[in-house]
Design a protein around this nucleic acid. Structure first.
Lengths: 161, 161
DNA sequence: ATGAAATTCACCCGAAAGGATGAAGACCAT
DNA sequence: ATGGTCTTCATCCTTTCGGGTGAATTTCAT
């Protein structure tokens, strides 16, 4: 059972090579027949070679078309998400997506209320430096250059009220 | 002159066909030589045919790659765009009550979007000092100590979105 | 138990913000 | 035309913010 699965997997992975092998075999058979026709009865070796050339050119084209990697074109589709503004519901998805921790969220919320870093430090019972570190991390995660920008983005994303 | 231009144009438009023709001629010449080698001295007709097959397969692949339009695989990526469903209506009463001027409101709005004073100055075509003056006046009128506080209060009062 | 993430704190330095004050030109209404 | 507001800009000075870096400790899951 395990072996069979592996075999099938192998075949599907190398199906192009496999196809090429089979095609080649078939074509060689046809060629043998043509060889008889032309070599023996007609002696038209040039025509024979021409046929082979055309045939294998076609085969090459076919192969190339089959094997060519498609170019990948990415199209952005904007999906509108309406935010109801009546009761605030935190967008937990965005929080986890951006990797914002609890403590960082604490700082962000106080920031959005208009608190200075010193005031935030006092409210959270941590040092000013700690608040600064959280703030810096927030700016990175929110891709913001200033606290005002961070607040605006956070509000847009439904992270803070 | 006109004829020559037309000829050049024709050649450039059909350069792939032209290339194919030249290649074919060249290859046939090589084949003729191979024919002698193998047919007369070696009699290995199968090897000869095999060579032709491989050669023209390669030619076909090359041709296909040159001539084919690239396959395009389109990947749709949904991007969520957050939209508020309640239109913002400015509270004009509060504006007049607080005595906030047009220019000050301009500054306040850009502030709320997360712009720095320098950026605001550039957008409004005034100097940085002017923006600072407007900001200071805003902080007085809104009874705010910081821009973040001013923004929060302004949003609460319905002065900015 | 070991490595990753989170939390905490420190120091240095430059950039930005904010406070105080003065002042000039434009506009508007009485 | 005169006073009041608005807008503009300036200078000086202080505070706050933010970047960069390093590091100790805790927490937590594998």
């Amino acid at each position: 059972m395990e072996n069979m699965n592996r075999t099938i997997h192998f075949l599907s992975r190398h199906k192009h090579n496999f196809l090429y092998g089979v095609s080649l075999a078939g074509l060689l058979f046809i060629l043998k027949w043509l060889e008889l026709r032309y070599l023996i009865f007609n002696n038209g070796i040039e025509i024979y070679i021409g046929s082979i050339a055309l045939l294998f050119t076609a085969l090459g084209i076919w192969l190339a078309i089959r094997l060519m990697k498609p170019k990948i074109k990415t199209v952005l589709v904007e999906k509108e998400v309406y935010i109801s503004n009546t009761p605030f519901i935190r967008n937990e998805k965005e929080l986890t997506r951006l990797g914002i921790s609890k403590r960082e969220l604490d700082v962000l919320q106080l920031m959005a209320k208009g608190f200075s870093n010193v005031e935030i430090a006092e409210h959270l019972f941590v040092s000013l430096n700690t608040v600064k570190t959280h703030a810096s991390n927030l700016f990175m995660k929110l891709d913001a250059k200033r606290r005002t920008q961070a607040i605006e983005k956070a509000k847009q994303l439904g992270i803070v009220a």
